[in-house]
Amino acid sequence: MKNKEIPYVFRGPLKEYFNKYIDYKRSLGFKVGSSVYYTLKGMDDFFEDNELSFTLTKEMVETYVARRGSESVKTQHIRMSTIRQFSLFMNRIGFNFYVYPESDFVKVKSNFIPYIFTQTEINRLIRILDDIPFSPRYPTYHLIYPMLFRMLLGCGLRINEALGLKMANIDMEQGIIILDDTKNKSQRLLPMSQSLHRYCKLYVKRMGFSPAYDGYYYPSRCGGEYNSTPIYCQFRKFMQKAEIFRANGSPPRVHDVRHTFSVYSLEKMVREGRDIYCSLPVLSTYLGHRGIESTEKYLRMTVEAYDLVIGTMEDFYQGIFPEVIKHEE
């Protein structure tokens, strides 16, 4: 299944500036996907309904950011942030829009704890993935999912990073994944373990990729890029079949595989007696985080399950890292 192109259509009085704003954000290296578009579309509708005439007052902004019904605090926070960023952009190009102060943003608190798979659960899930039967309708389905899970677990990739891989991104001789278009616009070279490298070679052979093949490593039935939505749905089913559930009875998320890789990697380095002062920045770079604060949050969220890592890190991060308000994954 191919990712659908988003039609960026705005109809309000500032429609041309919304498109310029999107171009501006992209020029800075940000990805503007469907979630951003729909937030901007809501702002565009608000401007049209209120007959905005190239000025944005404090009253109008406060009306726009006010909480609506039973919406979540996170949704309101996103609206506040978006209109602030848009106002800053408009002022840069000569307008005089009211800029909503960041200090007035509603506080988004999250007590979410990622799910860390046990080795037993990982083995159980791999057995289920390896037993997926062949389907004439989806002839590569039973090959793609076992490979994808192994790569997510073995390299800690974000799901869209994995799905966007092409053969040119994988050095099959050296066993290195080359990521160019990442979330934070930085190139990453990810060495694979020997076992994963061997499995990748087997996968390429089973898929029947020719030496000249330069398409997607995980091709959809039409040969394009897989959409992440069916991946999420299918992995939920696999986890349910493997009887892997969170405390609330729901299956873990695909992104929890990345959390698992991170925690296991830190634990391994600690057990090997490596200097944690050096290990954490290495893992941060491998994961593609902008800074080690984003990596350090894995430790805060898994205190009870991985006390060896936390205990070793306690003196290191105590009082050093600022509170991470906008978590990056």
Rank of each mutant, 00 (worst) to 15 (best):
M207H: 08
T285C: 09
T285I: 12
Q234W: 10
K205A: 08
P230N: 07
E329Y: 10
R221L: 13
H289C: 00
D256Q: 02
A247N: 06
R271Y: 11
M269T: 12
V204A: 15
P251A: 05
V282D: 10
F235N: 00
P251M: 05
E323C: 02
G215C: 02
G319T: 07
G291L: 03
A212Y: 13
Y217I: 01
M301R: 14
L280E: 07
L196G: 07
Q240W: 01
Y218L: 07
F238K: 02
E328K: 08
C278A: 15
L280S: 04
T285G: 09
G208C: 05
D307E: 15
M239P: 04
Y286N: 03
Q194M: 12
L196A: 06
Y218A: 03
E323N: 07
I244P: 08
A212M: 11
L280Y: 05
G208A: 02
I310G: 08
Y264A: 10
D256G: 02
T260A: 06
S284V: 04
I310A: 15
I276G: 04
G215R: 07
F209Y: 09
S265A: 12
F235K: 02
R253S: 07
F235E: 04
Y317L: 15
H327F: 09
Y218W: 06
Y216C: 01
E243D: 11
I276V: 15
M313V: 13
Y286G: 00
R236I: 14
S294L: 02
T302P: 04
G208H: 02
T260L: 04
L283D: 04
G273I: 02
E243Q: 12
G273Y: 00
C222E: 13
G224F: 07
G223A: 02
T302L: 04
V309C: 11
R198W: 09
Y216F: 13
T312V: 13
G223N: 01
V309Q: 09
R198M: 14
V309S: 13
F245D: 02
L287C: 04
M207E: 08
R206W: 07
M269Y: 11
M313G: 14
L283S: 05
R198P: 00
T260N: 04
G319L: 06
S284N: 03
I310L: 13
P251H: 03
T295I: 00
I231V: 15
S265Y: 11
G273K: 06
R246Q: 08
G288P: 01
